[in-house]
Every structure is written in C-alpha cells, then in structure tokens.
Design a protein around this nucleic acid. Structure first.
Length: 1108
RNA sequence: GGGCGAUUAGCUCAGUCGGUUAGAGCGCUUCUCUGAUAAGGAAGAGGUCCCUGGUUCGAAUCCAGGAUCGCCCA
C-alpha cells in the first residue's frame, strides 16, 4: 500500500500530539511490556521526585534519560517494568506549608496543631501532580504512574519500619549527639542549604585566653571568636604536624604555635624552647571556665582539660591551639570523641550547659563564682562583654580585638545561628563502610570518575547516618522508650497493634505519638520491665525513605516479596549528580545494611542545567526555561535530542531555546524531508512500484536478512553502500547504548541521516524520478532502520515514520532493535571506497571553484591522480564521481606522470617507537630520499624492490606505512590535492560543451518556471521556448534531454522575433532565475509565461499542464 | 579549608594509544548548487589548546604546581 502523503512543513509539536493519541488508542506502552512477558528482566528504579513544585527543565533532563535506556532495552528483548514513584515527606514540604500558612517556627506549627499541619502537608505534596503527569506523558517518558509508589503510604511506611527493626536487631541503631547549625529562636536545626542562605558579614569580638597548665606558671594561649562557648570547654587541641614554642612575654610564659609567635605577640616575645605537638599532648590545664561542673573522666579516655590532637588545627589564624567545646562544634565533638572524652551513643557524657532556647543553664556563672549567668542568651553582645571583662578581671585575657568574618544567620528570623549538639538517632553505617566500598566496586558509574572520585572518596569518609529529624511530616521513627531507659523498635503495624491494642488507620504523627505499650525488655529481676513505653518524637530522614524503595515500593517483605526479589538489584538508575550524597548513597547504605550488596549495577549521573550565560537557573533569577515553552515551540523530540546529543550529560548544559532549534533544523527537519522525499516519489510512482511490489516485500522483510543488492546495476553500488552504512551505524549505536553513551550514539544517527540525505538521495535522485524499484526499496529500508535506531531517542518522529512506511507491528516501539542478522550486509571495502570517492568529489568541486567553472557547465575531463587502493576505489565508483563533477570523462593517471610530484615525510607515529631518540635522524634520512622513487616502490612495490635507511647503525626497510606521501604542486597547473590524491580539470569549453551547458541552464529555468506555475512534480507539460537563437539551438540540440528532464510532452521552439511579440517586450531576467508572467498554469487554461537570462541571452518560457 | 570535575575558534562542542598542518556545527565573508530539505557544496577569515615548569625524539593529550569557573562537603 502506498504511504499516506506527507506535509514537508509539518508542525512537529502538533504531530507529536497525534502520535500520543495513537499510543493511547493502541495502548502501545502496555503492549510493549506485554510483548516481553517472561523475557529476562532489566530493572529500572525511579528516583522519586516531589510533586509539591512545578516540574522544570532539569526534571525533563532526568526523565528523558530515564526513558531512553528502558526503551532501548525493551527493544533489545528485555522486560523493563517501570514503576513510578513519589517522594512525599520532608522539610521542603513542611517549609512550603509553613509559608502557605504564615508559620515561622516550630512553636507556631505546634500551636496550629500537628494533625492539621500534616493534613496540609499531605495535600500539598500532590499540588502539581497533574502537571507532572501531563509533562511526563508529553515528553514521552514511559513509566507506570497509575501504580506509582508513594512514600507516605501506609504500606511504604511499614516496610521502612521493618527495615529499621532489622537494622536495630543487628545492633546498629543508637541515640547519640550531632552538632547542628541551630536557630535558638526558631528552635530548629537548619539544613546546610538553609545555612547557605543566611551568611552575613559581621564583626565579632575575638579573644586570646590564657589557660594555665596544672602545676606550672605556663599557660596555653587559645583564641576564639565565640567566647560564649568557653563554658563548654573540655580540652585544647594541637595540630600533630605543627611546631610549638614556649615564649616569655611581659613576665609570663605562653605556649603557642611557633609560626604564630610574632603575629600574636609581636617582637617582644622571646622564644625559650621549641617543642613538638607530641610533647604537648596529654598536658593538663586548669578548668573549668565559667562553670561549676566539670564532665566526669571516662574509662580509657583522656581526662577533662587535657591537650588532645586535632587534624583540623592550622596556623592560618589563632594560636595553633584550639579551644574544644564538643557541644558547640562538629570538629570539637569529633576530636573529643576520638580522644575518648565523650561517647557518641552516651548522651550523658557530653557537657552542654546551653538550653534549647539558647540560654545558659544553672551551671554557668562568673569565674569567681559570685554570680550566675543562668538564663542569659549566649549571642547577646552585652553578655559577651561581661564574659570578656570577667576573663580580664581574672588575669586570663591576653588581648581582645574585633574580627570580621562571614557568619551564618537564620534565613527566616535573622538570629545568629549557634552550632549545638542535639540528641539524634544514628545508624552505625561506619560498621558497613567496607561493605559499601566493596559494593561500590560492583557498580558501573557514568561518568566513570564518580566511582572512585566523588562517590568513592566520600564513602571512605563515611560517618554514622544521622537518621532522626525533629519535625512533623515524615515517617515516624518506630522507636519506643520507657522510663527505665529501655528502647524497643517496632517492626510492623501488626506488632504495634498487638503490643498496644491500638489499631491505626494512619501511622503518621500525631496519631502514632499517642500509642503506648508496656515495656517488653527484661528488668533487673529478669521479669519484663512493663513500664509504659512512649514513642520518641522524631521522624525519619526522608533519604531513608527513598533508600528503602527497592522493597518498600512493593510493601515487601509483608507483600509481594517475589516482586522485590525479581527486581533487585536494579540494572539502571539515573539521577542528577547531587544524588551521590542523596539517593545514590541512601540506596547503597540501606541495601548494604539489609542485604549486603549494592542495589544497582549501572548509574548514570546528570549535570546541572545552566542558562545561556552559564548562570545557574533559579526561580529567583528569573532565568529558568519553562519546559512547556520548549515543548510548544520545538516539541518533545527536539527537547530530548538536545539533551541526548549536545554534550555528555554529566558535564551540564548551557541551555537555550536557540540551541534546541538548531537540532531541529539540522537533524529533525533533515530526516523529515528525506522521508518526505521518499513518500512524494513513492506516491508519484505508485502504479509502477505496485507492479513489482511482490519483489519488494520479499526483499525487505521485517527482520530477515535481505539480498545484498537489488535488481539492476545502475546505482546498485549506492544502494549497497547506503544499506551497509546504515548497518554499520546500527551496530555502533547498540554498542554505545550498551555503554550508556547516548551522546555518541545519537551523533552517529545524525551523521547517518546526513549521509542518506546529502549523499545517497542526492546521487540517486534520478532513480527516484524514474521510479526505480531498487532505489525505493533501499531508501525505505534505510528509513525504517533509522526509525528503529531513533525510537529510543525521538520516539515520536520515529514512530510516525515507521507507522507510515511499514506499521506492521502497530508501533516502532513494539519492534526489535535491529542487530545482527536483522541488519543488511556490511561491505567495508565499498564504504571505504565511497569515502575516497567523496574526497575526490570534494577536490574536484574545489578545483571548479578555483577555476570559477560553474558545476552546471559540463567539462570534458577530470584528471584524477591516485595510486593503489585509492585509485581502485575511485575507479570503482568513477561513474558517481563523473556525474557529481559534471564531466564527460574521468581519466586516471599515476602521480609520477604529469600532474605532480610527491613529497615524502616520515610517519612519526610508526617510526617513533622504533627509532626513539634517533627519530630526528631517521626523519632526515627519509627526507633525503628521492620521493618519486619512494612513491614508486612503496605504492606499487615495483619489481620487488625495497628501500632502506640506516640510522645510528640500525637498518630499516621502509614499508608503505612508514612514510606519508603528499602531492606537491606542479608548475603552472591548478589542481586540488589532499594527501596522495589530486584532481585537475580540463577547462577548455568547446561549442559542444557550451551548448550542453546552455541546455542545462534552460532545463533549470524551465524547472523554476514549473515551480512558479505551481505544478506538481509529476505533472506533464506543454512547453514553448523562444528567445535568443543560440539558446533555441541548444534546446533543439538537446531536445530529448530537455523533454525528459522537464516532463515535457509537447515542445515547441520558436525564433527570437516570435518570442518578442509573444511577450510584448523582452524583460531582462536575473541570471538563472525567472519572473512569473502569467497566472496559475496548473489550474486554468492560461499558460504560464516568464523570461530568463542565460549567459546574458534571453529565453522566453511558456508552459501549461499537458492536457489542461 | 577538603573532595571531584571543567578550561580547545566569536558561540556550542569533538579530539582514540602522546606522533609533527588541532577538527565539526552555528555565526561571518565570497562563490556555487538546487524538479525533498529556511537545506546542500567549495573557498576564506577566525586558535597562546588557561598559565608555569617537568617527562619525552615528540605534549591539547602524561606528571607537578598555580589561576579561573562549577558541583559537593566543611
């Protein structure tokens, strides 16, 4: 059946809507899965987005990459289930709702009511669900959104609880401390993102404080910009690599870093002794400061008020001795823990005299003990002054000064943040660090450097996972505790119901907070403790939610354990680069903790999208590109194509509408017009083609190997080439997609389409006009193959082409990806020969341009200088070269004969490794040889003669690969050359050639007139030519050619006088152009008239549709 | 401050194992071709391959240091 007609100017976004409709009608996605029932699984995990904001261009990026590989693998025969997912919990959701409700602190949230607040959160999570769904469908991302998992579902939460109970059973869940940026006014810890929002430059007082060593008159000199942290001091840290000095200064003795003596104390200071960090370690000083209570010494740890080691200590500022307050700094906390002064999972071991509201507790008072600082806000400037005065009064202050620095403030209320140790629940991931590293080794990362770089390095520095959040909208931490300090982790809803008797419809806060049950732990007497257990107030870090998705999405192990097992681990996950610390990590950590293996085999990381100026896109800058804008203007295929092919996706994008438009013009439009060309002429020649249809169907079967060539030999080479070229590209694309290199694969398709359009079709046009079946079969086959190769990239246009040219399976997405036997035969010799022939054409066109000889003017001869393989290749395809260059003959000559002389150069690449240091000598020796002789020997191996060089005592026989031959210009001859290959043109134009050139110009003018007259390509015409007798004579001499080219049935030729009278007056036309003089010749009886000017001669054209 | 990446033509990007004239597309100039293509072809202009050292017969490519930009972490 002939294909339906194609609009060459088809609006692609509009076309895509129709294709979408067809997919819906034919249920193509569903059928593509059903067709792979029972096939091997290839597993994809959807990293769940949150639908509380509009989807942006970066979401399109990740979603199209999440689409291309599953589509490809499906076509390769795998079953690729694609379950959607939504991330529903977390602080961003809460903050959105707080803004909506005008709440600014946790206190206000609690006054509003947790139940109502969480209800708002639940609503807001799906605010933009519809837009997400619509976008997902519009961009052609095939994923099952009807059966998507949602982290807020009861089933999901229960699986998360199960996971935590498993982890607890392994003894890996504990309560410890975490130092967090904390806003004492809002009572909230801030995420790093929020902290980054609130940096301000401020001036704080900084103080140098003397800490007297026990039993000595020497003092450690420490420096701090936060005097309020001094009551929390328990140690002083030294840098292990730093050299220290004992100095005399104004009658006192201080210890500080040797490198800082002068900067801190000036030139008055006298260095008494130099000592290493080791000599200071373990020294004790007098404490506490400002505090009535000191922490207890711990078994096996350093006692309080000792000098300990800290890697982070530098000599960039301060004194090289750092005051350590573990409650108020993460480094402080870590070094104190490393020194055994505190225990992470023992909250009692930490000295923290600051309350949650940011005021001191009763333990803090003046140094002499005379008054209390209880209730004072620690960042109050007045308090700071009092503390400093107190130090001074007690002889502990060396100096104070003002220090300007950038300090974080609460982005909501502007209060300076404090770093503050808060109780938090942890997973002891450090225990499985080695297992995670081992798991990472089994993963293929794209790009590869992530594996041992960003991700691997980060894994090596793994610290325990701070799991809990003091928030409201999240999976509740399933930890219950009784008054005796016993802890129980609940692993299922059934267990909770059984223990408590309470059955909840919703296990979120606040409902779950009310559930109590008797403590099951063994008491001191061996009997169950039985004290009432209450749930701890925290919820779980949302990253744990998403990390649990491999099983939680199926509600495993409670339900569908088999589904989980069949889909674990994933073959493929794909997210933005920032997920290395996010989802990529949480998936790996959870899977390692529970199953001791990596949850994915291949990871593709995507980069950031920047605007055209390289600025990060953000709503606040207003430089975002809305996806809908792109989709409406250019369409989904164009959007996808840009992301796939403009660059490697992990490098990030400089994004602009123009860049997408370029892809449309250069690729999609080119493909479309090649397809249009095929359909146009297939329909124009339909009767003729139908006559041989049986042959075509048998030769271009769906997946079977086709015969190498079609009947007829005129162009059989081009056909074989096009098919071979397409087969080679198909193999390359499969290889690249298997390596997750969509960029290289896509670019290869573009090159193929360009070759088909600008070489195959261009050189074969006449065969399509003539209705040659082999040409149609070849182009159809190539286009169908392209549609399959392109299907994962641009699923819309690919499906349209397939549907119109074949359509047997209902969609290209139900086809197999063409590999192996399904591909046409390769002919590598022919591909190479064609490349050489095209180079010859390039040279010949260059020679024409140089001689200002228009291509339309035939020339007598092209002289091609080539030897050996090159010559054989060009000879094989000389007919193509001849036509393309528009010459009567192609003549071959050996290089030595007439057109040029060879130059010979050493091939460094080959000889370098052989001669090494002597390479320059070898190059000289080769340059000294007679190039013609080298060429003769090397190219044709005349008479078994060999050539040798001798360098530094080494003999070497030259082979063809050892030298590079180039042509040198002959005297006074104009040729184009490249390498060992040149083309010269015979420029003499005799009368015969001139007349043929004029005949071609006439044809060209008539073709323009046909177009101006609005005729269809297959319309036959009656034509009358008049004007300059020389042109009429040329037309007469090439009468048959002229009639054939212009589909003229009746041709009338007239003299100049007639032409003038027919037109009234002769108009000067533009060379090669024409001017319409009549109406539409196609429609009415009035003939179309115009005049043209050829070589300065006038031609009058009058034509009408034959039979009209 | 740490980890990772990037830096090649006016712009967007390739560049294989280190090989001697560093490429493509877009844009620009000139010419040309066109019975599918807002296309195509030829020629031209346009380069401190971020910088400095080093390794090597030979470095855009490998090594070290530095600069700038970006991401992540602190």
């Amino acid at each position: 059946m002939p294909p339906r007609p194609v609009d060459p100017r088809r609006d692609l976004p509009e076309l895509e809507q129709e294709v979408l409709e067809r997919w819906r009608e034919r249920e193509v996605f569903k059928r593509s899965l059903a067709a792979r029932e029972g096939a091997p699984q290839w597993v994809f995990y959807e990293g769940p987005p949150t639908a509380n904001g509009r989807p942006g261009s970066h979401h399109v990026l990740s979603r199209v990459f999440k689409d291309i590989y599953p589509r490809y693998k499906t076509m390769r025969g795998y079953r690729v289930d694609r379950k959607g997912g939504w991330d529903c919990h977390g602080l961003p959701v809460e903050i959105g709702v707080e803004e909506q409700l005008g709440l600014t602190s946790k206190k206000e949230v609690e006054e509003y009511g947790i139940e109502a607040f969480n209800a708002k959160c639940r609503e807001s999570v799906f605010t933009y669900l519809q837009e997400w769904d619509r976008l997902t469908e519009r961009i052609g991302f095939w994923i099952d959104l009807d059966d998507a998992y949602r982290t807020l579902d009861e089933s999901y939460i229960e699986s998360v609880w199960w996971a935590l109970a498993q982890i607890d059973a392994k003894g890996l869940l504990y309560e410890g401390h975490k130092v967090v940026p904390y806003c004492p006014r809002c009572g909230t810890a801030l995420s790093s993102h929020e902290v980054a929002l609130g940096y301000k430059d401020v001036v704080d007082p900084s103080v140098y404080v003397k800490l007297r060593l026990v039993g000595s008159d020497e003092s450690l000199l420490v420096w701090t910009t936060t005097p309020w942290t001094l009551p929390g001091n328990v140690a002083v840290a030294v840098g292990p690599e730093i050299e220290y000095a004992k100095v005399r200064f104004r009658g006192e003795t201080f210890m500080l870093a040797a490198a800082l003596v002068e900067r801190v104390l000036g030139d008055e200071a006298e260095v008494v002794e130099r000592l290493s960090a080791d000599e200071l370690l373990g020294r004790r000083y007098e404490g506490p400061l400002f505090s009535g209570s000191a922490p207890a010494a711990r078994q096996g740890g350093m006692p309080p008020y000792s000098v300990i080691a800290g890697d982070f200590v530098t000599t960039e500022d301060g004194t090289g001795l750092v005051h350590i307050a573990p409650a108020f700094g993460e480094d402080d906390f870590n070094v104190a823990a490393a020194a055994g002064m505190i225990e992470r999972d023992d909250p009692g071991s930490l000295l923290n005299p600051v309350r949650l509201d940011g005021t001191y507790d009763e333990r803090v008072g003046s140094i002499d003990g005379s008054r209390s600082y209880k209730g004072r806000f620690v960042k109050d400037p007045q308090l700071t002054e009092e503390l400093i005065a107190d130090l001074d009064a007690n002889g502990l202050l060396l100096r104070r000064s003002d220090y300007e620095h950038s300090y974080p403030h609460c982005w909501r209320c502007g209060t300076p943040l404090i770093y503050y140790a808060k109780a938090s629940w942890y997973i002891r991931t450090t225990v499985v660090k080695e297992a995670m590293l081992a798991g990472n080794e089994t993963v293929s990362w794209h790009p590869a450097h992530i594996k041992h770089g960003r991700f691997g390095e980060w894994l090596k520095g793994n610290v325990d996972w701070a799991l809990s959040r003091e928030r409201y909208w999240g999976t509740p931490l399933p930890v219950w505790r009784c008054g005796q300090g016993h802890v129980h982790v609940v692993g299922s809803f059934a267990e909770l119901a059984e223990r408590s008797g309470a059955s909840l419809a919703d296990h979120h806060r606040p409902f779950v907070d009310d559930v109590q049950f008797p403590c099951p732990s063994a008491g001191a007497d061996g009997q169950p403790c039985g004290a009432p257990m209450r749930r701890v107030p925290e919820v779980i870090d949302v990253w744990f939610d998403s990390g649990a998705m491999p099983f939680a999405q199926h509600h495993a192990p409670f339900e569908r354990q088999d589904a989980f097992q069949a889909h674990f681990p994933a073959d493929f996950v794909c997210e933005a680069l920032d997920q290395t610390r996010g989802w990529f990590y949480s998936l790996l950590a959870v899977s390692t903790l529970l199953f001791d293996q990596a949850p994915y085999r291949n990871v593709v990381c995507l980069g950031l999208i920047l605007d055209a100026e390289g600025q990060k896109m953000s709503k606040s800058k207003g430089n975002t590109v809305e996806p809908w804008q792109v989709l409406d203007e250019h369409g989904a295929d164009a959007f996808r194509w840009y992301f796939f092919t403009s660059k490697q996706p992990w490098d990030g994008y400089r994004f602009s509408q123009e860049a997408i438009g370029e892809g449309v013009r250069l690729f999609l439009k080119q493909l479309w017009s090649t397809y249009f060309f095929y359909v146009l002429y297939a329909n124009a020649n339909a009767p003729r083609l139908e006559a041989v249809e049986g042959d075509l169907d048998s030769s271009a079967s769906e997946n079977g190997r086709r015969p190498d060539a079609f009947a007829g030999d005129h162009g059989a080479q081009l056909d074989r080439w096009a098919l071979s070229r397409t087969a080679g590209t198909a193999a390359l694309i499969a290889e690249k997609l298997d390596e997750y290199d969509a960029t290289a694969a896509g670019r290869a398709i573009a090159e193929l389409v360009d070759d088909l359009s600008n070489w195959y079709v261009r050189r074969s046009r006449r065969r399509f006009w003539d209705g040659e079946p082999a040409a149609f079969a070849t182009l159809r086959e190539c286009l169908l193959l392209v549609s399959k190769l392109l299907a994962p990239f641009c699923p819309f246009i690919a499906d349209e082409i397939y549907d119109n040219l074949d359509g047997t399976l209902g969609s290209v997405h139900l086809c197999d990806f063409p590999v192996g036997d399904a591909l046409p035969a390769r002919d590598l010799d022919l591909e190479e020969a064609m490349a050489t022939a095209r180079q010859t054409v390039r040279l010949g066109l260059g020679a024409r341009a140089k001689a200002k000889a228009k291509v339309r003017q035939p020339l007598a001869e092209a002289v091609v200088v080539a030897d050996g393989r090159e010559r054989a290749a060009i000879e094989r395809l000389s007919e193509i070269v001849r036509e393309e260059l528009n010459v009567r003959r192609v003549r071959f000559v050996d290089a030595a004969e007439e057109l040029g002389r060879y130059e010979v150069k050493a091939n460094y690449r080959r000889l370098g490794p052989i001669f090494g240091k002597d390479m320059p000598l070898a190059a000289e020796a080769i340059a000294a040889l007679d190039p013609q002789r080298v060429a003769g020997v090397v190219l044709s191996g005349e008479g078994g003669e060999t050539l040798g060089i001798s360098v530094a005592g080494r003999e070497h026989t030259l082979s063809a690969e050892d030298v590079i031959l180039t042509m040198s210009a002959p005297e006074g001859y104009s040729v184009e050359r490249e390498g060992a290959h040149a083309v010269a043109l015979e420029l003499t134009i005799d009368e015969d050639l001139r007349q043929e050139g004029q005949a071609r110009e006439i044809v060209h003018a008539v073709q323009n007139a046909r177009k101006n007259a609005g005729l269809e390509v297959e319309d036959r015409i009656s034509l009358t030519l008049a004007g300059d007798p020389r042109l009429v004579a040329a037309a007469s001499a090439h009468r048959d050619y002229l009639k054939g080219e212009t589909l003229t049935i009746e041709l009338a030729l007239a003299g100049a006088e007639q032409a003038a009278s027919a037109n009234g007056a002769t108009r000067g036309g533009v060379a090669g152009g024409g001017q319409a003089d009549g109406g539409e010749a196609g429609g009415g009886a009035a003939p179309h008239r115009e005049t043209a000017s050829i070589d300065g001669l006038t031609l009058s054209i009058e034509l009408s549709r034959f039979g009209a």
